[in-house]
């Protein structure tokens, strides 16, 4: 299937999104709530593009618009840029101190926000990446969107320590604003934002923390791995395998 992006003819597989087709063709589209490993939520609206189909032109989000034969897409028209700037201005007023928003503002030429920065709340931009990674990849769904409208937030149910959180830290890694903090102290892994404190498994050989016990249990259930390697840190694991391979005479 073929489509046009910024006057360039681009080929794509059916089922792909405009964003994916653009990426394949090395055409950059900014996005905050999109991640290739996760379903599209389409909430940040930064990935908007101008789409022409027949004689109608409209604004659509590229992260979830499926490619169609012959459509014409413009990723950086004046209308698109104007709207992106407005979105960034809104986000800048919400989280003035977040680096990724400041960078986007600079990229789009937004010098300052015209909105009042008075209700400074926090650094979460509600992109929902943490929610989706927890649900779709980790498979536990410990956190979700709560409340609605301007009071919406991401949290555990009732703001209590979740029963199902395994403390894997996927949310921490994926968060684009760095607003989920994680610390390993006194044999526990703490993610304060989710009220989580989970005991860590120490490496049987060197004593360094490996992962939370709950995380290791989940791995044990999912993959048929020899139990002894779950109790080792990455370094010791490597040594362990090396020794085994040597012992078997392959090296």
């Amino acid at each position: 299937m073929e489509l046009t992006i910024n006057s360039k003819r681009v080929s794509a597989e059916p089922g792909m999104t405009i964003y994916q087709a653009a990426k394949k063709a090395n055409i950059y589209i900014p996005a905050l709530c999109y991640h290739e490993a996760l379903s599209s939520m389409g909430s940040c609206r930064l990935c908007i593009v101008e789409l022409t189909k027949g004689n109608r032109t409209k604004i659509v989000t590229s992260c979830n618009y499926p490619v169609e034969e012959g459509i014409k897409v413009v990723t950086d028209s004046e209308r698109v840029l104007k709207n992106r700037r407005m979105i960034v201005e809104l986000l800048l007023a919400r989280c003035p101190e977040v680096k990724i928003i400041q960078d986007l503002a600079q990229e789009l030429g937004v010098k300052k926000t015209r909105f009042r920065i008075d209700e400074y709340k926090e650094n979460c931009i509600l992109c929902g990446l943490c929610v989706r990674v927890c649900e779709e990849v980790v498979g536990v769904g410990a956190i979700s969107f709560l409340g609605r409208g301007k009071d919406e937030k991401v949290d555990t149910p009732f703001h209590r320590a979740s029963d199902v959180c395994i403390g894997c830290g996927a949310c921490v890694t994926i968060c684009p604003t760095g607003c989920i903090k994680m610390e390993d102290i006194d044999g526990n892994r703490k993610i304060d934002r989710w009220q989580a404190s989970l005991p860590l498994q120490r490496c049987k050989i060197c004593g360094k923390p490996v992962a939370t016990r709950k995380h290791l249990e989940q791995i044990k259930e999912r993959f048929a791995l020899p139990p002894e390697i779950l109790e080792l840190c990455p370094d010791c694991k490597r040594n362990y395998y090396k020794k085994q391979v040597v012992a078997q005479g392959h090296l």
């Binding site: 389409g42 940040c44 609206r45 909105f115 609605r148 409208g149 919406e152």
Partner: peptide, 21 residues
């Protein structure tokens, strides 16, 4: 409308609220 916005997307959640402000 601010009260009823679901909060999912930025222009409605942040934008309509700013209009109200």
């Amino acid at each position: 409308l601010v009260e009823e916005s679901c909060g999912k997307c930025v222009p409605c959640r942040e934008g309509v609220w700013r209009m109200l402000q």
